Computed example of a mutant assay.
Amino acid sequence: MIKKIIFYFILCLFFSESSQAQKEKDSLFMNLNLKFDENPLELNKTYVSKYKDTLQINLVKFYISDIQIEYANKTFFLQSNSHYLIDIENQSSLKIPICKTENKIVNKITFNIGIDSLTNVSGALSGDLDPTKGMYWAWQSGYINMKIEGKSNSCKTRKNEFQFHIGGYLKPNYAMREVVLFPKSNNLDIVVNFASFFDKIQLSETNSVMIPGKKAMELANLSAKMFYIE
């Protein structure tokens, strides 16, 4: 009897894994590869920017929202009201499910970095938008679109820390940014290169952005340029 139960359990497990594998095969995913130059981004690893700033990153979180796919036949798929919190410490968050493949060729993918104004004023939300995720300031300022924290000897701050909390949903400080990419195949492997962000700022001068404003807008522009397809 026990052998039959074990056999049945193993059989169920096999079919469950096979079903999941088939589901992934039939689905379109956005795969985010976090990098610093040509190397995978690792927390607390030492990197050097073009400004010769030696730095370590210890926190990376950002939102991807409203993913839209344009196919080669000019049809579209839009994930409206979709919000994904990307967290380097949660590797499963780097793989975003979009839709079924439908045997169509992807021509263009469009998405936002951050949270739109309407969602910001919609009240307390759950899931990845739950304020307990640490990505919400207050109703006056709304959600933080992207957080990058770490330390560098170039920063004349407490414990040589830098903190970039990029957000803002009210004009003229509307910090959400749109990214448009043109994949070479239906494998949507998207690089997010943090070197391009730090290569444009001097940490001795810019090391703490914690509220919406002009500086957050400038960093939001830099954050959009981090995304590309190789």
Rank of each mutant, 00 (worst) to 15 (best):
L170A: 06
E70K: 11
N160I: 07
E161R: 08
I98D: 00
T206D: 02
M30G: 06
C155T: 00
F77V: 14
D189R: 01
F15I: 05
K156L: 14
N120R: 11
M146E: 10
F76T: 14
N31D: 14
F15G: 00
V192L: 15
G134F: 04
S16Q: 08
G167A: 09
K61I: 11
Y169F: 12
I2G: 14
E38V: 00
I98W: 10
A21M: 13
N186F: 07
K108N: 11
D128Y: 11
Y71H: 13
S196N: 09
M176S: 10
L32Q: 07
L41K: 00
Q20P: 02
W139Q: 01
M1Y: 04
T54D: 02
F198W: 11
E149S: 08
A138S: 09
F162R: 03
Y143L: 05
R177A: 02
N39W: 04
I166H: 02
F14C: 09
R177W: 04
F227G: 01
I229V: 13
L28K: 09
K133A: 02
A124Q: 06
E89R: 13
I2L: 08
K200Q: 15
N207H: 14
Q20E: 11
F7N: 09
V191D: 14
K61V: 06
T157A: 08
I88C: 12
P212W: 13
I211A: 08
I148Y: 00
V192I: 15
M176V: 15
F15A: 06
F76V: 13
V60E: 06
H83E: 15
M210I: 13
F76L: 13
N90E: 15
